[in-house]
Design a protein around this nucleic acid. Structure first.
Length: 185
DNA sequence: CAGAGGATCGGCT
DNA sequence: GCCGATCCTCTGG
């Protein structure tokens, strides 16, 4: 939860041969190592989720519903399956490349709205699973950004099991966020 | 090996 | 807000 909150306002950068894209994260969700029926790590480590068990700051990228990739940041220590899902971001650099990768986006504010869309605009797939996101200058990394004026906490999205409490974090009033914005700052 | 379900998206009502 | 597409992953027998 600490990392999920911390990452709202942080920057995500990808430097790839096709070009550079960057964005400011506005929405995240926490998936806990203990007592979280919705976490991919709920039944232990598998071939798919092993990166979730890497040390804090590593990427966990998975493929879902046969159509979308999602990017997470591992949040605990090596051996503990816990991560933060990046759900939405504000486009900063490489808008043209993002539009090319996301031709269906209705407008620029929607380019990075939703975890699958964010990953698509960044051109991510399983090749970046396990990458260290803490080294500036590597292909994909996190950097300091501008903190939000206020952070809202809501229930997570798309969870059919037990909805849990407030494990979703988003910048208050952000036009780049996904889903409903319930109160409770 | 078969079966079930999913941390989604986009289109339609 | 509701629903279907799509296919990967895990579980159980």
């Amino acid at each position: 939860m600490d990392l999920a909150r911390f990452l709202v306002g942080a920057l995500l950068v990808r430097d790839a041969p096709e070009g550079r894209v960057s964005a400011r994260i506005v929405e995240t969700e926490a998936y806990l190592a203990q007592g979280d029926a919705a976490s991919h790590s709920r039944s232990g480590q598998t071939a798919r989720n092993r990166s979730m068990f890497l040390a804090r700051g590593h990427a966990y990228v998975y493929f879902i519903y046969g159509s979308a990739y999602c990017l997470n940041v591992a949040s605990a220590r090596n051996g503990v399956g816990e991560a933060v899902l990046l759900r939405a971001a504000e486009p900063l650099e490489g808008l043209e490349l993002m539009r090319k990768r996301r031709p269906k986006a209705k407008n620029d504010a929607a380019l990075l709205r939703g975890p699958g869309n964010l990953a698509a605009a960044f051109g991510l797939d399983r090749r970046l699973d396990g990458a260290d996101l803490c080294e500036a200058g590597s292909e994909l990394y996190l950097a300091r950004g501008t903190p939000p004026a206020a952070i809202l906490e809501t229930e997570r999205i798309g969870i059919s099991r037990d909805a849990h409490h407030q494990l979703r974090f988003l910048e208050a009033g952000s036009p780049f966020a996904s889903g409903p914005k319930r109160p409770r700052a």
